[in-house]
Simulated scan of single mutants.
Amino acid sequence: MVSPVVIRRASRWQDSVRLLLLIDAAARPISETETETEAAPPTSVGVVHTQVRLQKLDFWVRYPDYLAFELMNEYEKAPDEPELLNLAAGILNSDEPDLRRFPMLRYKFGAFQELDDSLAPLVERGLLSKTQVLGQKRVVEHIYYLLERGREVVDAMIADAPALEWYVERTRLVVDLVDGLGGTQLKDRQYLLRDYADTPVGEHISSITDQARVRLGELQSSHVASAARTVPEAS
Rank of each mutant, 00 (worst) to 15 (best):
P103C: 02
G110W: 00
A156W: 00
E152V: 01
M104W: 03
H142I: 10
D116Y: 15
R106A: 08
D116V: 13
V154Y: 05
A120P: 02
Q136L: 12
V153R: 04
I91Q: 06
T131I: 06
R100P: 07
D98C: 14
Y107W: 15
S94F: 01
D160K: 14
L85P: 15
E148C: 11
Q136C: 09
A120H: 15
L134W: 07
L127N: 13
S129C: 04
F112D: 14
Y145L: 15
L115G: 14
R149Q: 08
L122E: 00
L105G: 14
S129L: 03
F109R: 12
I91W: 11
D95C: 01
V140Y: 02
D95Y: 06
L87H: 12
R149V: 02
A88S: 02
V133K: 04
V139E: 08
E124S: 05
R151N: 10
V140A: 09
F109H: 13
V133A: 03
L92I: 05
S118E: 12
Y144W: 08
L84W: 13
L128T: 11
A161D: 13
M157N: 05
R125M: 13
L115Y: 02
A88D: 02
A120D: 13
F109T: 14
A161P: 03
A89K: 08
I158C: 08
K137T: 11
I158V: 15
P121Q: 08
G126Y: 00
A159Y: 10
P162E: 00
L92W: 01
I91L: 07
S94T: 01
E83G: 08
R125W: 04
Y145C: 13
L146S: 03
D160A: 11
L99F: 03
R125Y: 10
Y144S: 08
E83T: 12
D155V: 01
R138K: 15
E148Q: 11
Q113A: 05
S118C: 09
A120S: 04
S94P: 10
V140K: 01
L105R: 09
L146D: 10
D117C: 04
V154P: 06
K108P: 07
A111L: 14
R100S: 09
L85W: 00
L122T: 06
A88C: 06
T131W: 03
V123W: 01
E114I: 03
A111N: 10
R100E: 09
V153Y: 06
L115K: 14
L146Y: 03
Q132Y: 00
D155N: 10
L87M: 09
A111T: 07
I158Y: 07
M157F: 08
L147T: 09
G150N: 00
G110R: 00
E83H: 14
D95Q: 11
D117H: 07
A111Y: 15
L127T: 10
V154R: 06
D155M: 00
S129V: 04
L128M: 05
R101H: 06
D98S: 07
E96Y: 03
L105H: 05
L87K: 11
A88Q: 11
R100M: 06
K108E: 10
R101Q: 00
Q132W: 05
A88I: 02
L85S: 08
L87T: 12
A111V: 05
I158D: 00
M157K: 12
D160W: 11
Q136H: 05
E141K: 12
G150T: 03
Y145M: 15
R106V: 04
